[in-house]
Deep mutational scan, measured.
Amino acid sequence: LVRYRTISKIPQITLNFVDLKGDPFLASPTSDREIIAPKIKERTHNVTEKVTQVLSLGADVLPEYKLQAPRIHRWTILHYSPFKAVWDWLILLLVIYTAVFTPYSAAFLLKETEEGPPATECGYACQPLAVVDLIVDIMFIVDILINFRTTYVNANEEVVSHPGRIAVHYFKGWFLIDMVAAIPFDLLIFGSGSEELIGLLKTARLLRLVRVARKLDRYSEYGAAVLFLLMCTFALIAHWLACIWYAIGNMEQPHMDSRIGWLHNLGDQIGKPYNSSGLGGPSIKDKYVTALYFTFSSLTSVGFGNVSPNTNSEKIFSICVMLIGSLMYASIFGNVSAIIQRLYSGTARYHTQMLRVREFIRFHQIPNPLRQRLEEYFQHAWSYTNGIDMNAVLKGFPECLQADICLHLNRSLLQHCKPFRGATKGCLRALAMKFKTTHAPPGDTLVHAGDLLTALYFISRGSIEILRGDVVVAILGKNDIFGEPLNLYARPGKSNGDVRALTYCDLHKIHR
């Protein structure tokens, strides 16, 4: 019993810090008490220290592992850092350059016999395009090294910054494609005289377009951006097909006994025919423009016929181009109408809503002055909100995010209106959640004399007048207030005048 009563005193000691020596009952000389009392004092002292730490809000209350900052290894790049964003855009520009100039170089340097010394005699450094290609190869190699040090988000939505895990993730992902696209074939085969082989191998750079397509997928929600990307894709495919079309004609031209190829026909049409040795002929500019003209006309199913396939190889390629053109029509131009419709969806919704308003007016036989006010209010409210119901949009977000959005939407009023000066951010967040926005066209009466005042109004834009009878008592403008002081009276009061809008007004109100 003594032991039980001794232990039962522990909660009292913990909360009230009572010393055991003052209790005459606990001072009985028993061996059990002498053993338990020192333990009680020690526990009391420890609990006292913990309570003191909690009340003082000291940093040592938290466990040590929670006080440590997340460790980022040296030379690790955050995937959302500004440097990584700028670097990704730079790589994107280099990939676009590669997609345009690599097929052009591979096709127009394929057994090209233009006048001038061969590239091997001039030297590697004197070729501007080769120098640019070398810079692109170096940048792609540097990009691989950067990807080995860039964080990523795993399946659990955690940012991984450990170098080993980053390397394994990159090896399992895009490393092989990036490595093949970054191989400097110019340096590996330079001086061997195989410019045709170098041009063909350099087309491996186009593998990076797969990554670019995935990154550009984030802009699919913007109709104008999608339309622009589709047109660029169409032009890029036409450019690639033009390079292939020229390569076919250029390879067949020296081996044909009869002059029936499209390059021969082009030379005869523009007065620059090929001679018996295969030299001469149109310039590279004429060849490229004509090839691009043929691919565009074939892809769009126009086909004027002034550039036509004559050999079997050219006919087979033309059939493939027609098939590609039909697929592009289905996948690209078939979506253009939907994209344009999405661009004008706001206008369509406006006309639909206006039609419903006019049908309501016609069905209920609203008189002319009231009908005009109804239409003007709808037009003004639509121009202010673009038909978007803010309350319906915010309803799907958590309250903390709703408060931040409301604070942002009402920031101008909260910053410049005098009653809100000096208020804490928590108070402003709470008030912003209570605001209701209303609009009024010129001549609209917001409050009639004798109406119950259940709200306090803040003028965000425009001006109003307060009338008693036919006498203008006051004219209020931006950041002015009218209405009933909230919670100042037990019952809502009545208006002693009319409140009429002089201009288009936007008002925020808080109800009782």
Rank of each mutant, 00 (worst) to 15 (best):
H79N: 02
N156S: 13
L355C: 13
A247F: 13
F360L: 04
A125E: 01
V131E: 01
Y329T: 15
M256H: 12
E112H: 14
N306R: 01
Y219M: 10
I166M: 13
A430H: 15
R373L: 03
I96L: 07
L67R: 05
T76V: 07
V447L: 12
I244F: 01
A167I: 05
S105V: 05
Y377P: 01
R205D: 01
D178Q: 01
Q402D: 01
A432T: 04
I324F: 08
L197W: 04
K111C: 03
I91V: 14
S192Y: 07
L266M: 03
G280T: 03
L370W: 01
E157H: 04
A181F: 01
V307I: 15
K66A: 07
A106D: 01
K172L: 05
Q353P: 01
W87S: 01
D143G: 01
V210M: 09
G422K: 12
R349C: 08
N312W: 01
L145H: 01
A213V: 07
G346W: 03
F435P: 02
G199T: 11
I144K: 01
I166L: 08
Y219H: 07
N154Y: 05
Y377K: 01
A155K: 14
F175C: 04
F185C: 05
L292H: 01
R342F: 05
Y124H: 01
F228I: 10
L176M: 13
D178E: 03
H380L: 05
Y97R: 01
L207R: 14
G191Q: 06
I405Q: 01
V336P: 03
E114Q: 15
T295W: 01
F108P: 01
N335K: 12
D186R: 13
Q253I: 15
I332M: 04
I324R: 01
I177C: 14
G303T: 03
D137G: 09
R74A: 08
I189R: 14
H169Y: 10
D217C: 12
M390L: 08
L327N: 01
S105R: 10
A449D: 13
P309D: 01
D268K: 11
W240A: 01
L413R: 01
E314N: 01
A423G: 06
Q269W: 01
T300M: 04
H351Q: 03
L299N: 01
A130K: 15
M251L: 11
Y274G: 01
L327C: 03
L110A: 14
L188H: 14
Q372Y: 13
F420C: 01
F378P: 06
F185E: 01
P282C: 01
Y65G: 05
R218H: 05
L414R: 03
P419S: 12
I144Q: 01
T295Q: 01
R211M: 03
I405R: 02
